[in-house]
Design a protein around this nucleic acid. Structure first.
Lengths: 110, 110
DNA sequence: AGAACCTGCAACTATCCGGTTGCATTTCGC
DNA sequence: GCGAAATGCAACCGGATAGTTGCAGGTTCT
């Protein structure tokens, strides 16, 4: 299996978006409680609303989240597709790692 | 299920380490071809050996890679544990997202 | 011994990133 | 209509980070 199937250029930005503790908390919160507004998301966070907004835009740019205006508030929801892409990437790495181990085993043992 | 089970403080650094295209390529290469030296890893890369070294240290700091000296060269290999932790995190998010969808379905439909 | 090779350490640069503050704009409730 | 609430936009700051170059030290090979 080729390493190019992992598509580093596509999946790296997804990992980068998940690679911040605050952002990962936002993703977790959106995944548990469903879509919610920026203000509600900021409610029990230790940072500013604008910081939350920036993080949401980072998630949106990675395709992980999407916003829709509802009256005066913008509701944000998770997008599952990139999450699955990231999962497939990790699965691919693990699979390759396993087959490499198998090859080593076949080479060492008779 | 609580969001804290995703352990953002622990898994975010792993995602951050995977969130760079060059680093993800290194990880993919190590997963396919097994342990190799820095020079061999730099062979067909477009960046300097020192840059590769820095990336390897970032991976090591995230627990994703490990080095062992062998003569004049240092051989680097992947560590599967953090990869599985990242996978479990993504699985947890997807699971929570699915149950949230189910709750919504139960709420909307009779 | 000497050349070629692999690595480590340090300094330096440019850029990106997380976070803040301040202000303007739209929208809801009374 | 008016105040309060929710958002958007822009500027700014400090620290991290991806990358480079240069040099010194340990290893292998002939």
């Amino acid at each position: 299996m080729l390493a190019s199937r992992l598509r580093p250029k596509k999946t790296a930005p997804i990992f980068a978006a998940l690679g911040d503790e605050t952002r990962l908390r936002i993703v977790a919160r959106l995944s548990t409680s469903g879509p919610m507004s920026i203000a509600h998301l900021t409610r029990d966070a230790s940072i500013t609303r604008q910081a939350v907004t920036k993080h949401l835009h980072v998630l949106a740019h990675a395709g992980l989240a999407r916003s829709s205006r509802l009256g005066r508030e913008s509701v944000w929801e998770l997008q599952p597709a990139p999450l699955e892409a990231a999962r497939r990437c990790l699965d691919g790495i693990s699979a390759q790692w396993d087959t490499a181990l198998d090859r080593l085993k076949l080479f060492v043992e008779p």
